[in-house]
Write a protein that binds this DNA or RNA. Structure first.
Lengths: 231, 231
DNA sequence: TCAATAGTGTCTGTTAGACATTATGGA
DNA sequence: TCCATAATGTCTAACAGACACTATTGA
């Protein structure tokens, strides 16, 4: 047995039941949608987030990636940890601890007909275990709050996209309309995208040039602090 | 035993050993410092972050607050979850899972002489279990990335502070110098602080007026997207 | 032709940063 | 007095947002 310091008692760990929950998000019809699994083939109106327990010698990140792949068939474009939920809210597997992740799936890459699964708009979540509802809501909040820190918007789009599509993603995540000319000017100044030589015509109107995400360099400016977003 | 769906195999949870790790941060001498505990009264050069296992019926947040209080004597000015670390990096209690938190302690409120503890600048971390080093670094990164989303800077200052002190905190967290006049203009426009009728004289120079954090209202403007911070 | 969308040029009010200046204390 | 710091006014370049306009397709 180890000696203990007189000053600081050495704590000991506790065992808890743990699960990894994954909220996969994709843009659909100008809204964000999350992938839900039917809880039971018979219960039509009971749903779950994809989840599993970590296997031995598997880190939570690896578990999350495995869960996402098993549901989507392919890995998501991005996957990030949201946090650990361990309050009283019930988990479908009765895990004491939920290590939760958000994954981003490009628009259109989400095959419609995953067996027993459905993309559901985040404003219209059905009956869901309270823990899973909290995870889904935290996933959306996490993406919204990180949109201006990481190139998340590009993870919600295919490799080639129009600038209007990109602006739509930003408007979706920011929850407000943006000015077209300003958006493009700022985008051009940031050297984040480059045009391809392809064009896409959708319905009426002039065809749009396709762009790809190609961050080149950071501009030197780095303007001052913005207190606007602070509560 | 529960019936299992034919479509979706119902996962089951796994038990893991878990700990709650807390990185307490305070500004010291134009640097960020983290509170470390001596691992052992005899081993002078082995250190730990404050940590403990969650008690039964205690959420991780409650555990973190309890750990922080027990070390500081008082609750921290803010405490937020960073994430769950569960990779191979070793934890001092050999926990498989670390639920980690960052707590903010106002400048000066950190009593110097907590028995067996020391504030250490984050650039000069001593020998530390790899998991704890990762947590400490993630704590700093989390505060830095949230500085423009939440009024964290005010949690690192006492209730009354000078504008130069506030600017120092921002410079500390942003890692770059700010323009004084611009900083104050932006601050005034955001209605985040109000002057008190007290002044403080430190060494030479004109005494500075003390301000307090008093967010009044959000300005209506909400300007456009900034791509600068995106990689 | 009209409708709809893409993309761009110009104007204007706002703002960030530079600079200068005044204010006020301690050494 | 000199020096250091606080606090503020002014100027300018950059930028955000409004608006108008052209371009290009399908109906």
């Amino acid at each position: 047995m180890r000696e203990r310091s007189l000053v600081i008692p050495r704590p000991s760990v506790r065992t808890m039941t743990a699960a990894v929950d994954v909220a996969l998000l994709t843009p659909r019809d100008r809204r964000l949608a999350v992938l839900l699994l039917r809880a039971d083939a018979r219960a039509r109106d009971r749903w779950l987030l994809p989840w599993d327990a970590p296997r031995s010698d598997e880190s939570p990140d690896e578990t999350a990636l495995r869960v996402a792949r098993s549901v989507l068939g392919v890995p998501p474009a991005a996957i990030d940890q949201i946090g650990a939920f361990g309050d009283g809210r019930r988990h479908p597997g009765d895990a004491q601890l939920s290590i939760s992740f958000v994954g981003l799936v490009p628009q259109g890459a989400a095959s419609e007909s995953i067996d027993g699964a459905a993309w559901v708009e985040i404003d219209q979540l059905p009956l869901l275990a309270p823990r899973h509802r909290a995870v889904a809501e935290a996933a959306v909040a996490a993406v919204r709050s990180r949109i201006d820190q990481a190139p998340l918007a590009f993870r919600l789009l295919p490799a080639a996209f129009t600038l209007s599509e990109l602006q739509s993603i930003y408007e979706l995540l920011l929850g407000r309309a943006l000015h077209k000319a300003s958006f493009r000017r700022a985008l051009q100044a940031a050297f984040l995208v480059e045009p391809t030589d392809e064009w896409r015509s959708e319905g009426r109107g002039r065809p749009a040039q396709l762009y790809r995400y190609a961050p080149r360099r950071r501009r030197g400016t780095r303007r001052g602090v913005r207190f606007d977003s602070i509560a």
